[in-house]
């Protein structure tokens, strides 16, 4: 079942021309995209291609200038829907330090449901559940400012979960984290997805894309390709044009396959690929 439908949506930012007159800059233009409930979708593209603008269209932070964005059957341009839409789409941004609003972890997570007017006993329940889902229960009474980046992002995810959304949008939420922090956040995202949550992951790390169900590639404000990760990574011309590259292991596997080696062309694990190459060399001997 479709949970988000973007129908020919465009959004423009105000920009000043060189002569001082007001013009416009493309945020996104004529984007059409459908996202299935329960799917894990990656949104990729170079800096400034419109990924974050698109993310903001998904929960009505921005409303399309033309076209239509429908979330859980509700049109985001109808102001009466905004509250209901934001309850359904939780967002986590890039910088963990910019998303903390309280001085105690559990109060930070409670911020969303409090604003929605959820009764107090239910808030406690929601906060406890949300912290448990991201594996941060033992930090409930701590100060968020002394946590690691990965832990802060998990708290930010818990804050989004406390409003009980159907969709979680991670807008480069792993960009500022170290490898361990990235792993923590991705594990939580995949685990939520297995529990039925629709996850939209915006990222520059192509290794993270490998584990997604589908990928939408953006360039110049529009979606230029959609497919499975491997369909996208197989398309060298496309990757080159939009300034992306496949994970290194996939690149090497493709090069070897094209040169006639007997290797799995879509190999994602460097060690497996190494083993296959060893077998190839043995056979030659």
């Amino acid at each position: 079942m479709e949970i988000i439908n973007i129908d020919n949506a465009s959004y423009y930012y105000k920009a000043y021309n060189d002569d001082g007159t007001v013009g416009r800059a493309v945020g996104v233009e004529n984007v059409t995209l459908s996202i299935e409930e329960g799917s894990f979708v990656a949104l990729v593209g170079h800096n400034g291609c419109g990924k974050s603008t698109l993310a903001k269209l998904l929960n009505g932070l921005l409303v399309p200038a033309s076209g239509k964005v429908t979330v859980c059957g509700m049109d985001t341009s109808d102001k009466n829907n905004i509250f209901e839409i934001r309850k359904n789409v939780g967002m986590v941004f890039q910088n963990p330090d910019n998303q903390m609003v309280a001085s105690i972890v559990e109060e930070d997570v409670a911020f969303g449901p409090e604003n929605l007017g959820v009764p107090q006993p239910q808030i406690v329940q929601r906060v406890n559940d949300a912290l448990a889902q991201v594996g941060m229960s033992e930090y409930a009474k701590r100060s968020p400012h002394r946590l690691s980046g990965g832990q802060k992002q998990r708290i930010a995810i818990a804050g989004a979960l406390a409003i009980q959304p159907k969709v979680l949008v991670l807008d480069e939420s792993t960009a500022m984290l170290d490898p361990m922090g990235r792993r923590e956040v991705l594990q939580v995202a995949h685990q939520l997805n297995r529990g039925g949550m629709t996850v939209i992951l915006i990222t520059h790390f192509m290794e993270e894309v490998l584990d997604c169900d589908s990928v939408a590639v953006m360039d110049g404000g529009t979606v230029v390709a959609t497919g499975t990760p491997m369909q996208i990574f197989d398309n060298g011309t496309l990757l080159n044009r939009v300034g992306l590259r496949a994970p290194r292991t996939v690149e090497l596997a493709h090069l070897l396959k094209n040169a006639g080696w007997n290797v799995t062309p879509d190999c994602v694990d460097a060690r497996t690929l190494g083993g296959e190459v060893c077998l190839n060399l043995d056979q030659i001997k």
């Binding site: 170290d178 490898p179 361990m180 994970p247 290194r248 292991t249 090497l252 460097a270 060690r271 690929l273 190494g274 083993g275 190459v277 060893c278 060399l281």
Partner: peptide, 20 residues
């Protein structure tokens, strides 16, 4: 140490372990 081994190093290590 919670660091990652680069893809090309993982690949090379497997080859080395096989005497290559």
């Amino acid at each position: 140490m919670n660091l990652e081994v680069p893809a090309m190093a993982q690949f090379a290590n497997v080859l080395e372990a096989n005497g290559i």
